[in-house]
Design a protein around this nucleic acid. Structure first.
Lengths: 209, 209, 209, 209
DNA sequence: GATGAATGAGAGTTCATTCAT
DNA sequence: TATGAATGAACTCTCATTCAT
């Protein structure tokens, strides 16, 4: 009977969740994972601490939401960017560029998410967003790379170390954007794409850009 | 009259410090930064918790020791490895190779140190091992790169993004060594050196952008 | 909308604060300053120890409240008593009498407050209620004495040692009331007023009470 | 066989005890009772902490020694001063004067002893130097007062409150000497003796109650 | 005699979470 | 829905004391 979004939550409910998530992002960025207490998040949102546990089952669920909301947004934007890419080299270039520009658009959110990814653990001490979380990203890159090797666009290299390095280079970018806001993200993306294009392409035929 | 090491500590004192540091490394690796309580570290070392505070002024000092002991060892080994390198390209290759092999020799220690570096904060909430800690590494890489550009061995690229990416690729390695112990570190190093050699060198007899 | 007292606290908040303060007084009286742990105070109030830190920022604030609440009450009562005093001699007599009777009404509270005053130190090791706390009392007495000397009611003596001794005699009283509950406070006050009246008054004219 | 003092301790033993006691006095004066840890006392004496427990059964015994050594010295000096006093009035005056001058000679030691007297408690929470410690002093004063009343030198007053007040006035002096080193102790003593002489003596040629 | 090393008990404080209102 | 109040578990750290050397 009452107005609901597609998530099955009321608008007000949705609004409160966003308030808490936004405050969590800001707090994670400012004070880090272990400085991010429920009290601090609630204070930042100007809502009572106990309300947090009405909207989220527990603190972990809030932190997970910080990560998953970001992932959803990133996936959507990056997929859109890559839709029109043509050929393995362009796909890789588009992927790197898209990731870097996304990072430059949300440096603090990404920083916050990284705090959670690197620190949030379950009762056994295992990382909640462990290797399994980044693995799909790396797998996707590896698939692009193997595709390019099969098509002859890429030289013959071990795909795993290359994929890991590409992902690492992308993940290193947001820290720079966060602390050096004058950096030109486009130029930064250009450098990264050039780097990995040179590192991956087949070198025989030499008349490319 | 009493036997002392070069640090001004007795042997037994030195031994206890190592016990605690080793236990801290193991705990950081297993439970992460926020799971690493003084009680857990002491339990791992089978020594009373209060003894920890006899050997270290406080918990932070123990954690700092985890990092600084590693840094001291790494610097020593890497400098030794690079001593005989000849020319910019070889120097970069040696550097990367040396770092990767060092990482493969101490993956858990490095993982533990990273937990501390990314999480340990002072009373003001500022990271103790902040940007200032990794910056020297990146600066050193940048200097190598500029040297190579001046000598004509390297192509013309922005040195900062390249240095950041090199460091990121190196830092991403230990996580893999830790969880996939069958990985061949030498082969991994070969891939990385090839990657960045291709990305940096002046391409023969040609008009690169 | 919620019922509040003049302090800006809710009634229930105010009630809990009083519970803790009362328990602190009882504990200070029974076990002394260093025996008064947060755990013991909470146990005395039959409330969880952590609740203490919900109502008071820290233990020091609780202890300070023990003192300041007492001061507020004492000031109020003594000022009221002295309002109608006429002439220096009567003022001094009223002051002493009023202080002694107040002490006899709250001997344990005063003892508790003295524990705090004599022991509570800040981070630098300086007494929180240092000389500066008692000084105003002594200054007030000195002013009365000088007034009486100017008007010719009091003989010529050094005001400082006299004021210090008056205050000391008053402060010594509650310890007696605490341990000898049968003592008649009125008689005790009479003795003290006689003592200091004789010690201060001008002796020439001899037809006073 | 080895050289011993009258206390049954060797010279060196005696010397060490004094070192610890002196350091304890200094520490009590500087940091107060609860700041006076065994570690701090040992540091002040530049001796290992564990040595303290070789020379004293426990910390309490050290603190008790701070008090009892002072008492022994004080008793000796005051008795000597009073030996030649003649008549109740002179005796009281001599007593007050002697105490005040003694206080001015050892303000810090007295301050330290007071810290112990007011704070040291046994396992049950009872003051080790409780009422029972000061009582003899007060009793002695009371006896002087009663003597004077019997002989007709003193007027008729309740001896207990008077004795308590005299003792309190004496005890209040050292705090002033400690913080105002320019104060003239002789003058201070003169004021006190005048004060209590007037308060106690039979007023000439008159019909006091 | 004297020391460094070790320990258990307990200190103050924080925190995620619950619950009556 | 939202809040103030409360709690138990856990945390870092200090302390008096002991003991092998």
């Amino acid at each position: 009977m009452r107005s609901e979004t597609t998530t099955g939550r009321t608008f007000i409910e949705e609004a409160r969740r966003r308030q808490f998530i936004d405050s969590a992002i800001e707090t994670l960025d400012r004070l880090g994972f272990s400085g991010t207490s429920a009290a601090e998040v609630a204070r930042g949102a100007s809502i009572a601490k106990s309300a947090l546990f009405y909207h989220f089952k527990n603190k972990d669920e809030l932190l997970r939401a910080v990560v998953s909301d970001l992932y959803a947004l990133a996936a959507q934007e990056i997929v859109k960017d890559m839709a029109t890419a043509d050929g393995p080299r362009q796909m890789l270039i588009r992927y790197i560029r898209s990731c870097v520009l996304f990072a430059s658009a949300h440096p603090r959110w990404i920083g916050a998410a990284m705090e959670v990814i690197q620190n949030l653990r379950d009762a056994d001490g295992a990382l909640v967003f462990g290797a399994a979380t980044n693995q799909p990203n790396i797998d996707a890159i590896e698939q692009m790379l193997r595709e390019g090797q099969r098509s002859g666009d890429f030289r013959d290299f071990a795909t795993r170390p290359m994929a890991v390095s590409i992902r690492a280079a992308i993940d290193a970018a947001p820290a720079y954007f966060a602390h050096e806001p004058d950096l030109d993200p486009g130029a930064y993306a250009d450098e990264l794409t050039a780097l990995f294009d040179l590192a991956t392409r087949r070198t025989e035929a030499k008349e490319d850009t």
